[in-house]
């Protein structure tokens, strides 16, 4: 089970962070070539990330690179560098329509053929950062079989909506729209970053909300948030114990040829059994909540 709870942003121009970030063990590391890099350092960051992607220490962590938009002077050269360097996933910023994803896919395929990389091996994700992107979320999420997920990016989105970040009310529709599009397309959904890095209580409140909504995980800007997030996403011991009992009861019912079984007086049907199996797979992959 591939977990994508935490996607840690790293500025692509920061040599120290690129050299050491693997020790924090996020589920995915995202090297940023876009907003975190000044115009004068775009070339330097691109070359640094090109080499960082080939470091053996990143072999067992999913690598993602946020490139500059293809409409900018930097996007296509970013793409040339990272596809050739073997990036796992290219994150496209400011995705407003399915055409944006298809244009990216065409360029990725061309580069894969040019450099001898297996066609289709570069996966994609799309960041939705505008009202247009939210309205087109289903078309975006289904635009390419290479997509592993879509992400909501909060700051640009709230600006486009002529509002500002608050208690989450301002993101409610966008979160639900992005999440439904991802589930419809059977890909992952990622929530916005939480910028107040010293406010653990606020961060955990937001994590609890997005977990209950059904997001797979969240983009992070500080390594301190990784353990908090992973722990909040891990199932509790009670959930694991109950899931074991559900699966055992279901297996016993199957051996006895029963269509529906009950546990402690409650009916257990297929969705309950499937949920229990998901909980157990998650516990195996992430451990139990502390």
């Amino acid at each position: 089970m591939k977990l994508r709870r935490s996607m840690l942003f790293l500025p692509g121009s920061n040599a120290a962070m690129l050299s050491t970030a693997f020790v924090f063990r996020p589920d995915s590391i995202m090297f940023d070539l876009e907003d975190a890099v000044s115009l004068r350092e775009k070339d330097a960051a691109r070359i640094l990330v090109f080499h960082a992607l080939q470091m053996p220490v990143y072999r067992d962590i999913e690598t993602v690179v946020r490139i500059n938009p293809l409409s900018s002077p930097f996007g296509l050269t970013d793409l040339e560098a990272v596809v050739r360097a073997g990036v796992d996933v290219v994150r496209l910023p400011k995705t407003d329509s399915a055409d944006d994803v298809r244009a990216l896919e065409r360029e990725v395929e061309r580069i894969e053929r040019d450099c001898g990389r297996a066609v289709g091996s570069t996966r994609l994700m799309a960041a939705i950062e505008s009202a247009s992107g939210v309205v087109n979320a289903v078309a975006i999420a289904t635009a390419s079989p290479r997509l592993i997920g879509i992400a909501l990016a909060g700051f640009d989105y709230v600006m486009d909506m002529q509002t500002e970040r608050g208690d989450g009310t301002e993101l409610f529709y966008a979160r639900c729209a992005v999440l439904h599009a991802a589930r419809y397309a059977r890909i992952d959904a990622f929530d916005v970053v939480y910028a107040d890095v010293n406010n653990d209580a606020g961060f955990l409140q937001e994590v609890e909300l997005i977990k209950r909504l059904g997001f797979n995980g969240k983009s992070l800007i500080n390594p301190r948030q990784i353990d908090l997030l992973h722990n909040a996403f891990a199932p509790s011991q009670e959930e694991v114990d109950y899931s074991h009992r559900v699966v055992a009861a279901a297996e016993q019912g199957e051996r006895q040829g029963l269509g529906v079984v009950s546990l402690s007086g409650k009916m257990i049907d297929a969705p309950v059994i499937e949920h229990a199996r998901v909980v157990l797979r998650r516990a195996e992959a992430s451990g139990v909540r502390k």
Partner: peptide, 24 residues
């Protein structure tokens, strides 16, 4: 790998003709 990246960046920047602005 950082040494390599920084040397390569410096070289690529240094191959821009002196009359051209070294703009992004």
């Amino acid at each position: 790998c950082v040494i390599k990246a920084r040397v390569q960046t410096a070289v690529l920047r240094a191959t821009v003709a002196p009359g051209d602005a070294l703009s992004p």
